[in-house]
């Protein structure tokens, strides 16, 4: 036992030595998965009704190109997230728009997810990270453009399992749960996401990832021009 202990310590050292910020970074890297393309099914549930979207997603882990496949009325809409910039293409508009920064915190396709939940890395950019009893506790950096007062990121084996958003009065307002992580090409991808609006019962959004193809996504997919043409 005495011999085993130092070996364990050496093996665990990189994990134990990670700062909370590094832990968050690693977890977020895993959240977005490797470079891949996939089909996302998005159920927007409201009391008494539900709506299903099917989206084709292309991502290199940092940048995301997202195209609406269904419902038909909205098919052809496409979104591109490049860091702080968010672009939108709408077939009726016939051109691509760069959305004002306000767009990033808007809800996506009428769901409870924001563009940020799907594509952004705001948790890392806008918050400072601490760790309390195994939970990453995020508080906004000075001047950060977020309305939240605190975010808790619950990790399980280094993967984000649950994100709890609190308003500035200490009340939990939304909860994001992630699960069914799949190890792909050395990285991880959550295949199921569920977001609940904690202030409004019956408001829920579910997301399921399927038809995952791991591998390099053509660079053109991350150019606003290709929102219209498709990538």
């Amino acid at each position: 036992m005495r011999k085993v202990f130092p070996v364990l310590l050496i093996l665990l050292a990189p994990v134990l030595a990670q700062t909370p910020l590094e832990k968050l970074r690693t977890a977020l890297d895993r959240l977005r998965g490797p470079a891949h393309q996939a089909v996302y099914a998005l159920w927007v549930e409201r009391p008494g009704q539900s709506k299903l979207y099917r989206l084709k997603v292309y991502t290199d882990g940092e940048r995301v190109h997202l195209r609406v496949l269904e419902p038909k009325a909205e098919a052809g809409q496409a979104y591109l997230s490049l860091g702080q910039d968010l672009y939108l293409y709408d077939p009726r508009l016939g051109r691509t728009l760069r959305l004002p920064p306000t767009g990033r915190s808007e809800r996506f396709l009428g769901s409870d997810l924001t563009y940020q939940d799907l594509m952004g890395r705001d948790l890392e950019e806008l918050f400072q990270v601490a760790e309390e009893r195994g939970v990453l506790v995020l508080s906004p950096k000075p001047g950060a453009a977020t309305p939240y007062g605190r975010v808790e990121v619950h990790l399980k084996e280094g993967l984000v399992e649950r994100v709890l958003y609190f308003d500035q009065r200490g009340q939990a307002v939304r909860e994001l749960r992630l699960g069914a992580y799949q190890r792909l090409d050395g990285a991880y991808l959550p295949r199921e996401m569920e977001l609940k609006d904690l202030l409004r019962p019956g408001y829920r959004t579910r997301l399921e990832v399927s038809e995952v193809q791991v591998g390099g996504v053509p660079e053109r997919c991350f150019h606003p021009l290709y929102l219209e043409r498709g990538c």
């Binding site: 809409q77 939108l88 709408d90 809800r107 009428g110």
Partner: peptide, 11 residues
């Protein structure tokens, strides 16, 4: 006008 059950954008 995202966030509703509509298209969210309209020219």
């Amino acid at each position: 006008a995202p966030g509703g059950m509509g298209l969210g954008i309209f020219p």
